[in-house]
Nucleic acid binder design. Structure first.
Length: 149
DNA sequence: GCCAACGTTGGC
DNA sequence: GCCAACGTTGGC
């Protein structure tokens, strides 16, 4: 399983919107590197949900629920979208500053490429953020696997 | 609101 | 194919 980070401006599409709707198409991505990441995603992968601009914090964990298919709003056929569903809300949002000042997390891709809206997250980084968010990653993952079976 | 970073566009 | 101009993102 791979781990990702998805950015969204909360006044455009917030974590609460995803929780309310139960799933959404992650479309409109128009950056080649971000698109390549979308293509790599497999249903079951987990993605940190980050609020950019306002909040500037990781607020939840989404699950990739459908693989990349052509973005229907794109006629060129170059761009793709995926589908995501809410998985867990963090008990405590993890601020960008908390990430930046952490020796491990300060090296995340998000700081190398601040403008990229889809980035990869290493397993140890993901686990650390989930812990900072107040969740027991191992037990949450056990629940996930039980649900899957 | 400013501006740094950086991707895209278009003239040459 | 270079690179200046421009647009966008997103932290501050």
């Amino acid at each position: 399983m791979k781990y990702w980070l998805l950015k969204s401006e909360p006044f455009k599409y917030a974590w609460a919107d995803l929780v309310n709707e139960g799933k959404t198409n992650w479309d409109g991505v128009r950056n080649y590197q971000a698109r390549n990441y979308l293509k790599e995603m497999i249903p079951g992968d987990l993605a940190l949900f980050y609020h950019s601009n306002e909040g500037k914090e990781v607020v939840g964990i989404a699950r990739i629920s459908a693989p990349a298919i052509p973005d229907p709003q794109d006629e060129s056929g170059k761009w793709v979208m995926i589908e995501v569903a809410p998985w867990r809300s963090l008990k405590n949002p993890v601020s960008l500053n908390a990430l930046r000042t952490d020796p491990l997390l300060g090296k995340m891709d998000i700081f190398r490429q601040m403008r990229l809206s889809v980035t990869q997250v290493k397993p140890d980084e993901f686990e650390a953020i989930v812990a900072l968010g107040g969740l027991d990653f191992e037990s949450e993952l056990r629940h996930k696997n039980e649900q899957t079976h």
